[in-house]
Design a protein around this nucleic acid. Sequence first.
DNA 1: AAGAAAACAGTAATGATTTCCACTCGGTAT
DNA 2: ATACCGAGTGGAAATCATTACTGTTTTCTT
Lengths: 177, 177
Amino acid sequence: MILEFHKCRIDIENHLLKGKEELISRLRPKAERKKALKEYISKKKLKSTKQRDTIFDEFFNHPGQHITVEELYEKVKKQNPKIGYATVYRTLKLFKECALAFERNFGDGKTRYEPVKFEGEHHDHLICIGCGRITEFENPHIEHYSREVARVNEFKVVNHKLELYGYCSACTRKKDN
Amino acid sequence: MILEFHKCRIDIENHLLKGKEELISRLRPKAERKKALKEYISKKKLKSTKQRDTIFDEFFNHPGQHITVEELYEKVKKQNPKIGYATVYRTLKLFKECALAFERNFGDGKTRYEPVKFEGEHHDHLICIGCGRITEFENPHIEHYSREVARVNEFKVVNHKLELYGYCSACTRKKDN
DNA sequence: AAGAAAACAGTAATGATTTCCACTCGGTAT
DNA sequence: ATACCGAGTGGAAATCATTACTGTTTTCTT
């Protein structure tokens, strides 16, 4: 808890300090993603539609991680109330196909999606079995050895996920009663 | 014919030779798991039942990884045709609660379960987005740094999963056409 | 051996996801 | 620009894994 708060402070300060760079680095990936999507669409002879653009924007603008289809549907509907549930499903599947989005499942019966991270971004989780709390972390060593494994297996990595399941400190104490 | 017989003999002899060690190393984890289950059951004031024992045996005997509820149900039904679908669900959930089993989801809509690995056992995957092929791997360095992350966060790890998503060599070639 | 709590089998209900269908739209070739 | 055809859409119905509910049976404590 203390750790997280501390981390949060640092993030805010960093943000203020390097505001301009942050802005650039936030915008660039989005443009690249859009480009990637367009390329995939033309390569597969699919079609660009307004609906897809709207869903794209809502999905990649708000950095709310691991979003539910329903949550995204609600957001999208605010932009264009005519868009149907099925279209959101179909579009997320499309994002997944072209490796822009990523499917997750934390065990509550709902599939969640998150933007695939670009090189150098990480997204690993500590997931508490007790209270469901999810903490993110990064570890460059793990990154390094993952790449190594992929290289040895001639595997072209698009994304990875590392999840450590167990009990957070609070739940460990609770459990031992 | 003679050759085959001979080969067979050798296998038997090998088996006999290291029979004892094999037996121990195969039985110990299972016995420990059963003990863990019994402890959890008595701690939570639940009850031991024949159904749970049968499901336990079928789940932990056959090392078929990431088994579907339905697959397990079929196996269990061969031992005792009276056992119901819902009981298999409930029991797997119980295994999950006491950290003996682990829930996975590869995106085909079916939840899969696997025995939680003991210390020193690993279970990481390369998952091909193209053809769905799953390759297992182990990497002690990744293990090491995972433990480190957990330690720093005061997190008691029960299990972990690392999945690298991407394209296997075959699909990479196919994709670039 | 009796009683309370928990589990059971079987089935109905739930709810996330997919499919279907009639219609619309995007983009290429003319 | 126009016409065409395949892809995409919305809305609702269908599917299918999972969960909840029922009355009955089993376990375990005293």
